[in-house]
């Protein structure tokens, strides 16, 4: 498959994607954040995570 993302950015995307979701989750436990924002941020994180795939 043609790779559109330069290889050196794959891991950073993978990391940022998953970490975004995790940090949001942790933050939600301790700080009040509107649910809509949580949802949007998690979706963004998920998309970043998927975009790092190599297959």
């Amino acid at each position: 498959m043609k790779q559109y993302i330069p290889p050196k950015y794959r891991y950073p995307l993978f990391f940022i994607g998953l970490m975004t979701m995790i940090i949001t989750a942790i933050a939600y436990k301790f700080v009040f954040i509107p649910e809509v924002i949580i949802e949007v941020v998690v979706i963004v994180g998920f998309v970043l995570f998927v975009s790092s795939f190599t297959f």
Binding site: Y11, F15, L18, M19, I22, I23, A25, I26, K29
Partner: peptide, 20 residues
């Protein structure tokens, strides 16, 4: 930094599964 961040990712990932 890639390895360190990966370890952080693994630990916090498991942590979140435990947290919720």
């Amino acid at each position: 930094w890639r390895l360190l961040s990966f370890i952080v990712l693994l630990i916090s990932g498991i942590g979140v599964l435990m947290l919720y």
